[in-house]
Design a protein around this nucleic acid. Sequence first.
DNA 1: CTGTATGCAAACATTTTGCATAAGC
DNA 2: GCTTATGCAAAATGTTTGCATACAG
Lengths: 133, 133
Amino acid sequence: MPESHATASPQRRTRQRAAVHAIMSDLDEFRTAQQIHDVLRGNGDRIGLTTVYRTLQSMADAGEVDALRTGDGEMAYRRCSTGHHHHLVCRVCGRTVEVTGPAVERWATRVAEENGFREVSHDLEIFGTCAEH
Amino acid sequence: MPESHATASPQRRTRQRAAVHAIMSDLDEFRTAQQIHDVLRGNGDRIGLTTVYRTLQSMADAGEVDALRTGDGEMAYRRCSTGHHHHLVCRVCGRTVEVTGPAVERWATRVAEENGFREVSHDLEIFGTCAEH
DNA sequence: CTGTATGCAAACATTTTGCATAAGC
DNA sequence: GCTTATGCAAAATGTTTGCATACAG
């Protein structure tokens, strides 16, 4: 029996999709769809904001990028880095430092399981004023 | 010297504000401004959505309620319990459990200071699927 | 009375959707 | 050529703001 129902999206290879993938491989920090669109436009790429939204969304669904919602309620995306970590953010200049804390991970998982929760994940952001401010 | 510059808002006592305060004292779970507005309207209270937003915001600023942003990007509010704590949220039904973790607090502060950050605060939300789902 | 709070409507910002066109396969 | 991807414009969503009016103090 030939495979009949197209399981996932065949995902056609387009210039725009390639551009978004390229940007996301380069960037280390979380960026909103709009920021990525601006960068692409700045690079001379012709691409619509809608397409950026749609592409990032499908990349997130496919697990190719991490997605989070900023304090302002905007979605931000970043290529999946190896390993789980959190962000230390300067509330004056926005500088970001990646930090890891195995103890925190374990604590979060344990406390969740003690409360009967499964498939546990967590979000942690630390805010402060960095040395230059 | 008499206090000259009105420090915080004098906060006038109105029927609407009382209604929001009353609801918030009753509710144990996070609710969005719109949900609270619906409940108030359902109760027969005449109150504008704008006022609900403004009141909840000022209550959050005053530390009288906790605010968080849902996965949908909506602000949700719930009365503050005493002490600093975090939330364990069921991603299916929204049920919330308050959890505390002194070790996490200390870790966050230490790691921030090691990186030269001062006036440190943090935000932590744990997500999972609760026992009933 | 004076000035804050309210509430409608309109503005806003972000994200999503309808639909005609362009393009991958 | 058939079908998916694109992109504009418009809709949808959640929240905020301008401003005239109501009302607390």
